[in-house]
């Protein structure tokens, strides 16, 4: 399990106009895009085309490799497949259906599939752009700048710092189990994983106590020193203004045509 944190550090910290934006701008943009997309009715197909075009335009600006982004976007696939499984059962809305190769698909069901798939795609690609162009400390600073309660930002930054360490510790214990012939296949083998997690808890708690005592002895009083300063520049106003303007115009047009 070594190198598990490739999830977060696989990112090529390149330089692009998007990388240079203030983290608050990027956080607000993702939030706005997700909120606008979710609130748009699925029948307004052209609106989703505009949203997608905007997302992929920003993706191009950020110079992120398309394959990498799409591979990470696969995380939403299980949910879309789960909904797709229910498709034939949606015909009670009396909305008509299509026959495709002997399988009956209801129109209402297909509409719901399109609805969840396109909205999930837009928002997950936006989130991937955010995390691929922003370092974790920047993200935390951005959240602080947006007045997220400090207990969450502090807990999150500690979790980020130690979570992967514990993950690799768990990986080490798993290798130890495997080398001693553990090959759990069935639910009744799961107990041993419980022992592993118990050992992980005791170790991480011991570490937590050491970290805490070390911090207090160095004068920790509840705030983290040495934060990166935030800088909301002209480019941020321009980006956020353009995005919100576009989203607003599209949404109003959808509402008028409905």
């Amino acid at each position: 399990m070594a190198g598990t944190h490739h999830f977060l550090t696989d990112v090529r910290y390149g330089t692009s106009p998007i990388h240079a934006l203030d983290p608050r701008t990027k956080l607000l943009s993702v939030l706005a895009l997700a909120a606008f997309a979710v609130s748009t009715p699925p029948t307004a197909v052209w609106a989703f085309a505009v949203y997608l075009a905007a997302v992929f335009f920003v993706l191009g600006l950020a110079r992120l490799p398309l394959g990498y982004v799409l591979r990470r976007a696969l995380i939403i696939l299980p949910f879309i497949l789960a909904v797709a499984v229910f498709l034939p059962f949606f015909d009670r809305a009396g909305s008509g259906s299509y026959e495709v190769g002997g399988v009956e698909l209801s129109h209402h069901g297909l509409l719901i599939l399109w609805n969840v798939a396109v909205k999930a795609l837009i928002s997950v690609v936006a989130a991937i752009i955010l995390i691929s162009t922003t370092s974790f400390p920047e993200l935390i600073r951005g959240l602080e700048g947006l007045h997220v309660p400090r207990v969450f930002t502090l807990v999150a930054s500690f979790m980020y710092r130690y979570g992967f360490l514990f993950l690799e510790e768990a990986g080490r214990m798993r290798r130890a189990m495997a080398s001693r012939n553990y090959s759990g296949r069935w639910l009744w083998d799961a107990r041993l994983m419980g022992h592993l997690i118990a050992a992980l808890f005791l170790r991480s708690y011991a570490r937590a106590e050491r970290v805490y005592v070390a911090m207090v002895s160095r004068g920790f009083e509840g705030t983290m020193p040495g934060a990166v300063p935030l800088d909301f520049r002209t480019a941020d106003y321009a980006f956020l203004g353009a995005l919100l303007g576009l989203l607003g115009v599209v949404r109003v047009a959808v509402a008028m045509s409905a």
Partner: peptide
């Protein structure tokens, strides 16, 4: 809070341990 944070790290890691 650091104690809470490191424990959150534990929960985060424990969630990733698969069981059969």
């Amino acid at each position: 809070v650091p104690l809470l944070g490191v424990t959150a790290g534990f929960v985060f890691a424990a969630q990733m341990v698969n069981f059969p």
